[in-house]
Design a binder for these strands. Structure first.
Lengths: 240, 240
DNA sequence: CAAAAGGTGCCAAGATTTGGCACCGTTTTG
DNA sequence: CAAAACGGTGCCAAATCTTGGCACCTTTTG
């Protein structure tokens, strides 16, 4: 029998019976006492928390809290989870937030260093403004769900984003920008993009963007996005 | 060289070089062409997405989006993540929520069936009331952070919860209840507990609970928590 | 067509895992 | 107290699994 299969069998048995002795496991799994002991050592190495009571009436027991999952997550999925937890934390004092952080920390630890760097870079794209205490909750996210797919692709794969934009005076233009950041100034969302044609940063209110589309392979350069008052449309927001 | 180490080396090389041939990998890793091919097969079994182009100028390539993490999460941590994403979804239209769900689905899939049942049971404990559009965001979570540790323990390990409670008339009593659910009716949080002494459900406003403490091993029975009007303190809330 | 690339089946040589054994330290029980 | 029932460790030969080499197949490109 394969090592991994045997490990699985041991874990399964411990899960089912709660507690067991090495001898019983040996019989159940069909491996020698010696091998079971080695396997339990290996499982502990891997991170399983296995308690053992020595002496007559003793046995081994899988810590019920330690049943762990080894999910294979794509990096964008981890990114999404990070944002979820960050947003939740920003939104209030929900319990379990600490636990969620712990879980995320573990996920991060299992990523390679360069991937973590990528993740942080992506998170850096999302600037969430301070929420005033009287902020309307439903106005947190005025981003149209239709926009999401194209945005996700453009941000995560660093593609040029093409969309139609209706400016403050109602004129419609077509734009192609490098998406650099998303700025959340509740209740408004902004896309901060570098316009290669105009050679400068531009802000686009999400609710004025339509039919976005991520263009083919571009891998544009990340830029330092300035958030000074002259670039950032705080004032427009303040004058509402 | 160990199998796992070699697998890691292959993945690392593919990550670095983007694309490579079997021959080059063979040299780099120090194993035969045959072994590399076997390893790549094993990696694919494990879930790695490895593209290969046959013919002159071909090679193998690790799908850059498929870099995956295999974190070992404790079940309570998964629970916490689930709540985070659920809360985020409830709070608004943040992007990436779908991706986060996908990630969570994968995590869930990697759990054993009985653990998923447990998770669902735990999630079922959290009843989040509808948020009115004019809800104050900062009033989402008026649950004192001091309460969290004891609550988490009590809920996740199903222990009796002992705490001091100040009722509407200001009288302080000591309670010991089986925590059955948390009811979120923004801006108020309630603990729904079964009081074994009084043999009935009781609601406790979180902000009137103090010095909670999870008692030793109990593993009480889950009960069907009724949320009819006569039990649920909606009225108290409405009359604020 | 020839060369370069991925992919498969087979087998003996080489490396790792396994089982058995002796033995140690604890704890419970008669 | 002594024996029994536990988990845990070191050692070694036997059993098992992995590896490398080889022949050969298919696809693609110049």
């Amino acid at each position: 029998m394969n090592v991994r299969l045997r490990h699985d069998a041991i874990v399964r048995t411990l899960r089912r019976n709660g507690t067991s002795t090495i001898g019983a496991l040996s019989q159940e799994v069909g491996a020698s006492r010696r091998t079971i002991l080695r396997d339990i050592g290996a499982l502990r190495e891997e991170g399983y928390v296995i308690h053992s009571d020595v002496g007559r009436g003793g046995g081994v027991q899988l810590d019920p809290q330690s049943l762990h999952t080894t999910a294979k997550l794509l990096v964008p999925e981890v990114f999404a989870l990070l944002i979820s937890v960050a947003a939740m934390r920003a939104a209030g004092n929900l319990p379990f937030a600490d636990l969620a952080d712990l879980g995320l920390a573990k996920i991060e630890r299992s990523l390679s260093a360069d991937k973590v760097r990528d993740l942080r870079a992506m998170l850096a794209c999302l600037h969430i403004g301070q929420l005033s205490p009287l902020q309307d909750l439903s106005d947190m996210g005025r981003m149209d769900a239709d926009l999401l797919p194209a945005f996700e692709t453009a941000f995560l794969a660093r593609r040029l984003l093409r969309f139609r934009y209706r400016d403050a005076r109602g004129r419609e233009t077509q734009r192609e920008v490098e998406p650099q950041a998303m700025l959340v100034l509740p209740p408004l969302w902004y896309l901060v993009g570098w316009d290669p044609d105009r050679h400068g940063f531009r802000h686009f209110r999400m609710d004025r963007i339509s039919s976005p589309e991520a263009l083919a392979e571009t891998n544009f350069r990340r830029r330092h996005v300035p958030f000074e008052d002259d670039v950032c449309p705080y004032n427009e927001l303040r004058n509402r």
